[in-house]
Design a protein around this nucleic acid. Structure first.
Lengths: 377, 377
DNA sequence: CGACGGACTGAATCGTAGA
DNA sequence: GTCTACGATTCAGTCCGTC
């Protein structure tokens, strides 16, 4: 039975679904089954890794490595782990919106089984992403490569899913104007960020860094979206979601973790709306019909358009089409036609002569947009 | 029926097995079944990735991407691909010595299925290794992260396998005396290394870089060992094995690929005993996304940035862009815009106020680089 | 001779709003 | 649900021709 925990954000203007910004106590599958279908935008899942550690591991100085040996990471067999994996992935898929996406993190112990199950259940992988650790634990025995990364799988609910959120332009702008790659570099969660108990022992064995969650949420959600974390632990997802103006739903079995997560999330200061706007690039600009340039008097019917190399010439007609050799169509179609291509961006292809210089008609479109911004339609 | 190809190395002192240093023509499973059980030290496998590409893809300049659409990469379903995968993995396991290891390379399209099958068949994963590409193909439509890596799985034949070869000390010595990590950085195979036909077209669509194979063989084999490649293609594994004084066995269906591989391998000059590290050289300083400063907590969303003369002010947003008068873009674009220039280095232009002093954000970038100091090369 | 610019290329699961 | 038109989208190279 679910125990509804205290809401952590103030009441929004529109009545919010009752499950938002709460931590549900219980098993991830049964709790997800109680959530409405198609109700969350993004899922982040950090499931048990099924580490299968045989004996204790000691450092060269004979100190014992504090391994992940919790009960929740014990499975009888690969088969049992697969059954668990399919069960929660299936329940998660029901809760996800049709255009929602899911992130799952794992290591080589489990990620291959998880990825295969995701494909089997109909999820469509968009990327695998590598979290490269700046400060991974060394391999103390010297028998393998230093295990310096973990793997994330980013997938949409269905193979044909359209319209999932990917903030391509803001990621690119934040990355020196080159597109964000599939390999990310972050330190592991240590220091003040790592939650500790009264004796200074780490509260959770696999707490993830907030920077990792921030990258994920900034890439694949918009402010106001809801992110579900079915393995909530000590609430990294909730803390980052709250700071970034996203809603969260957490599911966690362990009451101690839930209490730590609630304290942690309540202490988070949400950022203001002005800091949360997402840079959308050209895609986010309002669409301007070419005809608007004529209506605004920026271009006269009969004007000659040429490409940058003055190889092609077209004439503007009063109806907002352009003509080459008597054949008229949109600026895009005609631009494609004269180049023998299947597509063309007429805004950047065509130019007008102004004071002896060629200027792309895209400049005129920008003028129209600026005027529109001052006088919204 | 196998067609035994010409031996490529001179006769060693001890009579060598007849299958060594040859390319066997035929299907990988039937050919492996004809090899003696427990006869090879290492297997390197670069199986079809099952890319499942739907339509054509064009670059922004409208040129068409030359996709991998070969018949050998077409499978009816995941089920068919899994059956193929299990068959060759099973045959490979029989040929492997009890203390041998196997490497398999793949992308997110297939590697999860391959990894799960390996675990199901009894292989024991030692590491997954990420090949980070210095120069991957971009994501032309801006709909996903740039797919900038491929994944390798390194596994022993059995879970309890003892005594597999791992040249820990030489790898560490070759890596500035720190352990070799699980993320490797190499360029893709281009230029003079890429085999071309008479018309200058690439001979094989997925030729792997020799540096990658050299790292693999130097890590997990000893001179004189035998490495089997059941998807030999144009023989990168054979060429590198011969140069490094290892024996090879290649299996390939396509006669044209075999002939190209034979010519290639015959031209290889075997080295002496000295080690070979191809891409260990200097790297440019790692690119640091501006977003990393936020992720590291060195800059808060909402922070004011100014230029050295305090003429311009910009506000940092959570997505890693900066805004002036409501218009947001990268630190570089906004820096250029406020100055009326076409370009600007935002790292040196923008400053933050700290204890009454202005400090360029480049100083914060240097801090991030210091924290992230590591040697993934 | 070198410098520079333009063309070309690589394992790729690469639209969407509005009618 | 389908159909149509809009119009957005690339990084690190190598190679070759021109200046």
């Amino acid at each position: 039975m679910a125990r509804s925990r205290s809401a952590l954000l103030t009441t929004p203007a529109v009545p919010a679904p009752s499950f938002r910004d709460q931590i549900l106590q219980g098993h991830c599958v049964s709790q997800m089954e109680m959530l409405p279908a198609g109700s969350v935008d993004v899922i982040f899942a950090d499931p048990p890794y099924n580490l299968q550690l045989a004996g204790d591991l000691h450092r060269p100085d004979q100190s014992k490595v504090d391994a992940v040996d919790d009960a929740w990471d014990q499975f009888e067999s690969f088969q049992a782990y697969d059954a668990f994996t399919r069960a929660w992935l299936l329940a998660a898929r029901r809760v996800l919106k049709p255009n929602g996406t899911i992130w799952v993190i794992g290591s080589y112990h489990n990620i291959f089984r998880v990825g295969a199950s995701m494909q089997d259940l109909g999820y469509w992988i968009l990327n695998d992403v590598v979290w490269r650790k700046t400060n991974p634990m060394p391999n103390f025995r010297g028998r393998r490569f230093q295990n310096a990364h973990e793997t994330l799988i980013w997938a949409s609910r269905d193979s044909g899913a359209k319209g999932y959120t990917f903030n391509y332009d803001s990621l690119k702008a934040a990355n020196d104007d080159v597109q964000m790659r599939s390999d990310w570099l972050f330190p592991i969660c240590t220091g003040g960020e790592r939650l500790k108990d009264e004796e200074g022992q780490k509260l959770h064995p696999t707490q993830k860094p907030e920077a990792l969650l921030a990258r994920i949420l900034l890439a694949s959600t918009k402010p106001g979206d809801t992110v579900l974390d079915p393995f909530f632990g000590t609430g990294t997802t909730g803390a980052v979601a709250r700071r970034l103006g996203r809603h969260f739903v957490g599911i966690e079995r362990d009451v101690d973790y839930i209490e730590a997560a609630e304290r942690r999330i309540a202490a988070v200061e949400p950022l203001g709306a002005e800091s949360l706007e997402i840079f959308g690039g050209k895609r986010a600009e309002p669409r301007v019909p070419f005809a608007s340039l004529l209506e605004a008097g920026l271009i006269e019917p009969g004007t000659r358009l040429t490409d940058a190399g003055r190889r092609h010439v077209a004439h503007v007609r009063a109806d907002g089409t352009v003509a080459v050799a008597g054949e008229a169509a949109s600026i895009h179609r005609v631009g494609a036609k004269v180049q023998g291509l299947s597509a063309c961006n007429g805004w950047t292809f065509w130019h007008v002569e102004a004071e002896g210089e060629l200027r792309p008609i895209d400049e005129l479109r920008r003028l129209v947009r600026e005027r529109m911004a001052q006088r919204p339609a």
